[in-house]
Design a protein around this nucleic acid. Structure first.
Lengths: 133, 133
DNA sequence: GATGTAAATGATAATCATTCTCATCAAGGA
DNA sequence: TCCTTGATGAGAATGATTATCATTTACATC
């Protein structure tokens, strides 16, 4: 199961870590996870490689939540829900932005549309329960 | 035309400045604009009051574009296009997120949905032209 | 008009996520 | 073996945002 080459060992680990979770983590969270297996990993390396993966389209960024950038290893188009109470991000995988809106956007702007992002914000179920209890 | 009270003079100016533009500015941009009329205004005051307006629902935040938070004085639901070339933000006022998606989001999460944001990213018309020329 | 109070503000320091720099190291080719 | 290239670690630098605190302002009461 060992990779043939030890090159890109940490790089691959960063990508694998992000792909293996649906928690839409921050760079710091990934860093903390990998710190166990790679005690000498640097936070700079995590940022560096996340930027690289972004450029290559292998991952996507959700933008910042509470001042921190959050990443998503799932590049399939899907919708997100962000809880303003606990900053958790939840996938809404069954939902999709109608294609008609995307083409309208390109027409209306006269530019090129590369991606679209639909995000709901509100209070998640557990935060709702916490408040009423 | 002078307001009856001079209280909240700068606060009102900040809100008026944001409401009077469709450029979806940053705190720093608003600060630079007001610096002319109010040479002693502080950047902290701009941030403070924008945070206040946000909490009161009088304005909305678009999140960060190129690492800086951008604001919108228009709280009517509408769609945005962000150019990754020049970081400009353009309104797509005719477009709306189908109500069916919003209710689906509430159902699927079991939480409370407060807002939704649909954002297209890509290259605006002038950046497209600049590239090909 | 003098005074007290509470809120608003300016100046600036502090915070903190992110990026940059540079020395070091590993891998592969000549 | 030597050389080149790219990846990394450590830590400094950056820069947007927030916090602090002394000062000012507006308004109410006397």
């Amino acid at each position: 199961m060992e990779p043939v080459t030890k090159q890109f060992k940490k790089r691959n680990a960063i990508l694998a870590c992000l792909k293996s979770t649906d928690s839409h983590p921050s760079a710091d969270w990934i860093y903390a996870q990998l710190k166990n297996e790679y005690p000498d990993i640097s936070l700079g390396t995590v940022y560096r490689n996340l930027t690289l993966f972004k450029q290559q389209g292998m991952i996507q960024s959700l933008g910042t939540v509470g001042g921190v950038e959050r990443f998503d290893g799932n590049t399939d188009p899907h919708v997100h829900f962000i809880c303003t109470g606990c900053d958790s991000v939840i996938d809404l995988p069954q939902m999709e932005v109608p294609q008609s809106l995307c083409s309208r956007a390109a027409e209306d702007t006269g530019g090129r549309v590369a991606a679209c992002q639909l995000t709901f914000t509100g209070t998640c179920q557990s935060c709702c329960l916490r408040k009423t209890s």
